[in-house]
Structures are given as C-alpha cells and as structure tokens.
C-alpha cells in the first residue's frame, strides 16, 4: 500500500518535472508565434485595412478567391517556384560537391569552410546592392563582357527570365555555404567501415559516393531540401532592391507582392490570404518530398 502511494507520488513528481521542461518553450511559442499566426489567419477573412481603427468587414473567402484568380499573384507564385526549383537543387548539389571535396583534403579544411561561408553571413541588403551594381546595364559584368566580346550588353534586370536567372545565381551563391556546412557534418558521421568494406570489394571513389555516401546522408538531404524550400519562398530583400517586381509585376515574388499589398495598398486581408495560400502550397510540396524520400 505504501509502495503504491510512493509510486504515485513519484509519477506525479515526474510529470511535474517534465511539464516544467516542456512548458516554457510551449508558452513562449504559443504567445509570440502561434497566437499571431492565428490572428493573421482570422485577418485573412476580413477586409482589414492597416491602421483603420474602424471595424473591418467580414468577407469570408473573398480574399482567397482574389488571391487565386489574380494574375499578379499567380505570376509571383510561378516566379518563386521557378526560383526554388533552380536554387534548392543548386545549393544541394553544389553544397554537397564542395563538402565532399573539402572532406577529402588533408589541410586547409577550415580555410575553405570559412571562405565558403562568407556569403551566408553577409547581409542580404549588402549583397543586393553589390550585385545590382554588377548587373546593371552599365555595371561591372556588362563592362567585362562588352569590352571583351564587343557584344550588345544584356539588360539583366529588365526581363522576367534574365532577372530570374540573376536572382537564382545570387540565391545559390549565397546559400551554398550553409548547405555545405550541413553536409560536411553529415559526411563526417558516415561510418568509415562502410568505405573500408567497399575498398576490399574493389570499389572506387565514384561508386562509393553513389552507393555508400548518398544513402547514408539521405535524411540530411531531405532536411536540407525542406529548409531550403521554405527559405526560397521567403526571398524578399534581393527582389525588392534589384527589380521590385518591375517591369509590370513580372518579376514579383510571393513576398514582395505580399509586402506591397500589406504596406502600400494597406490591404492586409489580401496579404494574409496570400501568405496562407502559399503556405498551403509549400506544405503540399514538403509532404510530396517526404513521401518521395520514404519510398526511394
């Protein structure tokens, strides 16, 4: 009898302690992230004009319908998708390659790790300003090409496709260091025995890479994929500072169009609806990625 009471006390004490560990994070998260998101979600069903203290009118799904049928948001989503489709695999492939190369070096590992991480820690604002000067019609790049090849300079930032290309290059450039760092960590965790066994069986480095390395870091690749996709959809600063959606909103990204609606047109309801619609889209993509990886 006494033992049972003691056990119950112990279990209660355990629950209390676990709750103590659990609660601060949950409370914090709920107050500063979850609650604002719920508020934003509710906002998306109203015609909420920023600043107006008068009542906003409930409009139901009107904002969502507008988001889906609006040409500009469609273009923005497409642009952001293309950007993601280029930059995410780009960062993964290049990051992985560089990680593998660095791992094979015996010296200068740290030197390269730091060098490749430089773009990651440089602020987007500085990066955008610098690259805008490089890609302007009479910027550095055109100057090099023009003076060397005597060809008509390309207006990089003035058409949809070339702007997307430029932004993608910058996106990959800035992100390689991050994925590289993640992959270096993952690579060092692959047990060496696997390679030694393969060596005995007469395998070479390239076979090793595809049959041992890749499968071992599969989960890391998936994780990086999801994180980079979310990051790609959150691209704002470079687009805003380099093209700001011009010309004619053809180079809008989801976030720049969201920002314009929220702060220039004060149409917060529409903006909120857009962010949740895109959020749904990203979730679907992420789920597909998960399932694909589970099967492969």
């Amino acid at each position: 009898m006494l033992k049972k009471i003691a056990k119950k006390r112990k279990i209660k004490k355990e629950y209390w302690q676990v709750t103590l560990l659990f609660l601060p994070g949950v409370i914090f998260f709920s107050l500063f992230t979850l609650y604002p998101i719920v508020k934003l979600f509710i906002m998306s069903f109203y015609e909420y004009k920023i600043g107006a203290l008068k009542e906003s009118t409930f409009v139901g799904l009107h904002n969502y319908i507008q988001v889906i049928s609006d040409e500009i948001s469609q273009a923005a989503v497409v642009n952001t998708l293309i950007y993601a489709l280029i930059t995410v695999p780009g960062q993964i492939v290049l990051g992985l390659l560089i990680a593998v190369f660095i791992n094979k070096l015996s010296k200068a590992k740290v030197f390269f790790r730091v060098l490749y991480y430089f773009p990651v820690i440089t602020s987007w604002v500085i990066v955008s300003v610098l690259f805008r000067y490089i890609f302007q019609n009479e910027g550095y790049l055109n100057y090099l090409i023009f003076s060397m090849l005597e060809v008509e300079p390309v207006h990089w930032l003035e058409t949809r496709m070339s702007s997307l290309a430029v932004l993608s290059i910058i996106g990959i450039w800035k992100g390689i260091g991050w994925s590289m760092t993640v992959f270096i960590a993952a690579l060092t965790a692959v047990p060496l025995e696997l390679y030694e066994v393969a060596e005995v069986d007469g395998s070479n480095s390239i076979k090793n890479f595809f049959y041992i390395t890749l499968p071992s870091i599969r989960n890391t690749i998936l994780f990086t994929f999801v994180m980079l996709t979310i990051g790609a959809f959150n691209t704002f600063t470079p687009v805003k500072l380099m093209t700001d959606g011009k010309p004619l909103h053809q180079t809008e990204f989801v976030l720049t169009w969201m920002y314009k609606n929220a702060f220039e047109f004060r149409n917060m309801g529409y903006s909120a609806a857009l962010s949740f619609t895109v959020g749904l889209l990203i979730s679907i993509i992420a789920i597909i990625q998960f399932n694909y990886f589970k099967k492969a």
């Binding site: 004009k49 920023i50 600043g51 107006a52 203290l53 008068k54 702060f263 004060r266």
Partner: peptide
C-alpha cells in the same frame, strides 16, 4: 506609422509626406 496605429501607439508629432495624408486620415 501604420503598424503603430493598429495599436494606438503613435508618436506625438509626425512629419508626414503630403501624399500620405489622405491615407492616414482614412486610418484615423
């Protein structure tokens, strides 16, 4: 200014670009 307005936390005096006046008035 717009964000501050949503919580009635505006500064006492603002130098307002004349193009913003109609907006700000509409936002009370």
């Amino acid at each position: 200014a717009l964000v501050a307005a949503t919580a009635s936390n505006l500064p006492d005096v603002i130098r307002v670009d004349s193009a913003w006046i109609p907006e700000f008035v509409d936002a009370d």
